[in-house]
């Protein structure tokens, strides 16, 4: 394994990662559809993945890339759970609106 990523280019990739992460955050708190909300967390995970791989290249080791494998696995697990939950919720209230769940408060 070879050419480490230069500081300049590294920050380019990290920048993309950060932007994806930030857009995911914004989507999470603005979109009311539960499915889209969770899609937005996946967007954040994308930001993390890109950052991890570029840092892995920069540091010349592979820990970042192996980390990505686990991130993907957990993303899949969380997605499975989230979708199961969404199905459950949808059956009861026939809506995917996240703001509809606000009985508990105060």
């Amino acid at each position: 394994m070879s050419t480490p990523l230069s500081g300049m280019l590294l920050s380019h990739f990290l920048m993309t990662g950060a932007i994806l992460f930030g857009l995911g955050l914004i989507g999470f708190v603005t979109r009311r559809n539960l499915i889209i909300m969770f899609l937005c967390t996946e967007l954040m995970f994308q930001g993390v993945v890109i950052s991890l791989v570029s840092l892995s290249l920069h540091h010349g080791n592979f820990e970042g890339q192996t980390f990505v494998i686990f991130v993907l696995t957990i993303a899949a697990a969380e997605a499975a759970l989230a979708l199961g939950l969404v199905v459950l919720l949808y059956r009861g209230r026939k809506t995917l609106d996240g703001t509809a769940w606000a009985l508990l408060r105060g």
């Binding site: 480490p4 230069s6 500081g7 300049m8 590294l10 920050s11 990290l14 920048m15 990662g17 950060a18 932007i19 992460f21 930030g22 857009l23 955050l25 950052s51 840092l55 920069h58 540091h59």
Partner: peptide
């Protein structure tokens, strides 16, 4: 938040 993260990552990672 994004601006903060950009600031943080902008400083290149030390080798």
């Amino acid at each position: 938040m994004m601006a903060l993260l950009l600031t943080a990552i902008h400083e290149p990672a030390p080798e």
